[in-house]
Design a protein around this nucleic acid. Structure first.
Lengths: 201, 201
DNA sequence: TCAACTAAAACGAACGTGCGTTCAGTATAA
DNA sequence: TTATACTGAACGCACGTTCGTTTTAGTTGA
């Protein structure tokens, strides 16, 4: 199939990235071999190397793709509900299973891998930055509206909420008897101190 | 130096573990080679293999040692101050740099590695469990004292605080302009809703 | 309409490298 | 003198990557 369309190139790359995601989420970046990615993508090593320079570039492309998906969840939160509802809506969307199965595992693996890989670290930093920016904006709007106390640093609140989001994933991974309901109740109670009062409290 | 004391065996093991910790915190488990650990411990490969069955066992021993250090920080928190002070004291102790340099990196690396290694996963789960137990006990005592609202699940609050502790480490790693002061202020404000009111708020 | 042709895409066995681990030999404390 | 801690060159294996070969989709000429 020579002289193939550019759409086909795109499709092949996505086919490889999908296979890579499945392998990486299960076994991690280091322990996943190229052969496994090839097998899952139903391609030979030679073919894969036509579309990616090597394993490292696959990881990087995947991380970029993943980060964009994650950030995309932020945008619809720009509505004008009260601050508590906005924050809680975001918390729910970002905490649950988005952006797909194995997301919590992938987050942890990306954090760890990014400690040694400058390119990945930049991507993770950007992801954190975009989330913080969005959360900060919500709290700032709340303060302008008088919804949120003015003497608290909006950025500080955003950091705290990001912790609660990340912690949700960690607890799901490592607390065998974790109960999301109780978590949301407690978080709602705490957030109630700085917002009008979330829907569940 | 044959027929050596059992204390010497202990010393050698700790010497190796210390070297391993320094390597692992910097480069991660997979990317650190046995040769690097040997060089840093000033021992030959053969000697190291007299004290540990292999790389995997070094990682496991290190994780166990590390987890015990971490849990050890919990105990002095059993005093009878008000709940806010107790929680905030713990948060400070656990968040900062304990139990040593590179702790935040090590946490993230252990989380990631434990996803594929059952023995490590058990250790991480135990660490989480011990922390949650300690935090839950503090909140329960607060509820008995009337310090903390009785209609909030103490376990849920413990989970939330654990998130805030873990998040502190993550933010230090990945938020370039992170300001611990603002974080503590915001967290204090939020915790104020369920405790008497922390020292900084 | 359909062979013959061509160039790109895909294959997969083979390569080199770097790793964890071992073991025959050496040094040393008792 | 001897049992034992220690050395470090060597081994085997598994990995990422390459490249000579094969297959295939599109093009050409009648």
């Amino acid at each position: 199939m020579p002289k193939v369309s550019q759409a086909h190139v795109q499709a092949r790359r996505e086919q490889i990235l999908r296979a890579a995601y499945e392998c990486f989420a299960r076994k991690g970046f280091q322990k996943t071999t190229m052969r496994e990615i090839c097998r899952r993508a139903k391609l030979s090593p030679g073919a894969v190397y036509l579309y990616f320079r090597g394993k490292e570039q696959i990881i990087e492309a995947l991380a970029r793709h993943y980060g964009e998906q994650r950030s995309g969840l932020l945008e619809p939160a720009d509505d004008d509900r009260d601050t508590g509802a906005a924050i809680f809506g975001l918390l729910g969307k970002l905490s649950e299973l988005s952006p797909g199965p194995g997301a919590a595992e992938m987050d942890v693996r990306l954090w760890a891998e990014s400690l040694d890989t400058p390119a990945l670290r930049r991507l993770v930093r950007r992801s954190f930055g975009e989330l913080i920016e969005g959360l900060t904006a919500i709290f700032r709007r709340g303060q302008e509206r008088g919804d949120v106390p003015a003497d608290v640093d909006a950025r500080g609140l955003a950091w705290a909420v990001l912790s609660l989001i990340a912690g949700f994933g960690l607890l799901n991974l490592f607390e065998s008897d974790f109960e999301p309901e109780a978590y949301y109740q407690a978080v709602g109670r705490m957030l109630g101190a700085v917002t009008g009062g979330p829907p569940t409290a």
